[in-house]
Amino acid sequence: MDTIRNVQKKINPKQMLSQYGTLFGLVAIVIIISIMKPRFLAIDNILNLLRQTSINGLLAIGMTYVVLTGGIDLSVGSIVGASGMFAALVAKSDYNLPWYVAVLVGFSVGLLLGTLNGVIVSYLKVPAFIATLGMLSIARGVTYMASDARPVPGLSEGFLKIGGGSIGAIPIPVVLLTIVLVICYISLYKHRYGRYVFATGGNAMAARVSGIKVKKIVCSVYMISGLLAGLAGVILTSRVTSGLAQSGQNYETDAIAAAVIGGNSLAGGRGRLWGTIVGFLIIGVMNNGLDMMAVSSYWQLVIKGSIIIIAVMLDSLNEAKS
């Protein structure tokens, strides 16, 4: 077995580049921006950047699970809106309810909508694209109805801390994101659940023959995505200090972008969590950096779109070579 160990120690520079290409990309972007705008590297800017990024981060992590099974969740933006709105309705300071009740309501709405997605995709066999496209519309409609399309301001102090507060110097959303990342890392790499997710996306039939409950796994990834969207919705509502029916609109784009920039194959079975982290950081750094450089938001859209295409292009060129 000596040979087996030796091979492991060998490091191939080409392989390194393909493995860590996106990470090098992130570092390059950070260097370029900080040369042009040195203030970019200031601690308060970094913390602010991370706070801004945490919402997309949560969505991108949920998206990673879904994408690993070969699915897609287009409804996360609407779930952010719905869960944020229902949390806001409960968190009004007039009701005098503790902050965690509103949080629980937000979570529950996210989990419920995610579960609906999961059941429709796995047990009712509707393609993920269609099922979650439908949910995108349904959840948004429900959000408008629940709020009569009016903002819901006047939220309780405790609730507002979730998005705006800090523990020490670290913003609470960043703390939450970190906790979620640790749990997700364990579930994907240290627990058999993750193995089953990869196997299901890689070859559902082989997974089933191996005794894996494939339908349950598929259903569960949408539940996770929904739950994390619920958390993101709570944070967003708290940050903007009122429930807005249109909040979270188009958030699915950045979440999907982060997942694919991170090297997760939309065909399923191939991907990595740290890639997603690099993916949402790239998007966050770009948003923040381009704002600082006063690049027009229209150009920002063009640049972001190009980055998505280039990242995936490099990835598939690499894949084709090996």
Binding site: F198, A199, G202, N203, M205, A206, A207, V209, G269, R270
Partner: peptide, 8 residues
Amino acid sequence: NEGLILQM
């Protein structure tokens, strides 16, 4: 198609 997860 039924035995292996090829990319694992």
